[in-house]
């Protein structure tokens, strides 16, 4: 069955109308993942720029919300196996990327 493992293409539980709520949750969560990712990045960057502890806390708050939306996304889609690994990887990437880009930006602007 290849990459999907034994879960098959497990899409929002049972096929048909029963899955619609889960579908709606999943697309909203999907959109919010990117939005919270950006807000976290922006607050983090402004926090560093102004050395503001409050903004940094807001940033980590946003990252918390990001974790929640990823959880909602994964459970709504009943993800299994390799897809959950991807979700974790995505979280790591969203967490680390802004920090790395900050360092890179500061270093290139020397």
């Amino acid at each position: 069955m290849g990459a999907l493992g034994h879960e098959g293409l497990n899409i929002v539980g049972p096929m048909g109308p029963e899955g619609l709520d889960a579908f709606l949750r999943a697309v909203i969560a999907g959109a919010l993942v990117v939005v919270f990712g950006a807000v976290y990045a922006a607050c983090f960057a402004f926090g560093r720029l102004f050395s503001s502890l409050i903004l940094m806390r807001v940033a980590y708050g946003c990252f918390g919300l990001l974790m929640v939306t990823v959880y909602v996304l994964a459970t709504s889609l009943q993800l299994g196996g390799v897809w959950n690994v991807l979700m974790v990887l995505m979280l790591v990437a969203y967490f680390v990327a802004p920090r790395m880009i900050w360092r890179l930006t500061a270093a290139t602007h020397e």
């Binding site: 990117v34 960057a45 402004f46």
Partner: peptide, 28 residues
């Protein structure tokens, strides 16, 4: 073939990360 589901899903999930990271650069 079905391996494209994994390949496509994986890179789709990571595609927005550079966009998000660029926010940091813009703020800087």
């Amino acid at each position: 073939p079905e391996y494209w589901l994994t390949v496509g899903g994986f890179f789709s999930a990571l595609e927005p990360v550079p966009l998000v990271a660029m926010v940091v650069h813009a703020v800087y």
